[in-house]
Amino acid sequence: MQYSEKVMDHFMNPRNVGEIENADGIGTCGNPVCGDLMTFYLRIEPRIEDPNKACISEIRFKTFGCGAAIAVASMASEMVKGKTLSEVTAMSRDDVANELDGLPPIKMHCSNIGVQAIQEAVKDYLKKIGRDDLAGKIKGCPDKKH
């Protein structure tokens, strides 16, 4: 099994590691039982009239997991910075994997967890501002028990 240079770079020097105090949205996906767990913290520039156009101004993450999991979290955090919530909701696991110049097939689930954890954080934000209607449209993390 071989990781790309980009994966190794993000794994060895992960970007945006940490937590945000009083974050606007927090999302977790994965499970230590399966060997991967990610938590993302978002600071969001609000847009009261259309929250889907609100932007992610700051992002931090923490990850328990293999090399791919750490690289995915780091890359995904870079990709969503400055993006609107609707852009983030439209992201797929392939987007992150492609940015990393690919992942070994057995590691694709890491990419899934990364995207889903961020979408979970977006969902959390929308709920906090009372927009359950919009939050309900986001899939987020399918397995929330951990």
């Binding site: 099994m1 794994f11 060997g35 328990f64 293999c66 090399g67 791919a68 057995i106």
Partner: peptide
Amino acid sequence: YIEGESMLLNLDMHGIYASSGSACTSGSL
């Protein structure tokens, strides 16, 4: 609190070769 493969990869960077019982290194989940 940490996972085996990520330790192995870091050790590898320092030329230390070990192994792990983590799913990530077994080729399964």
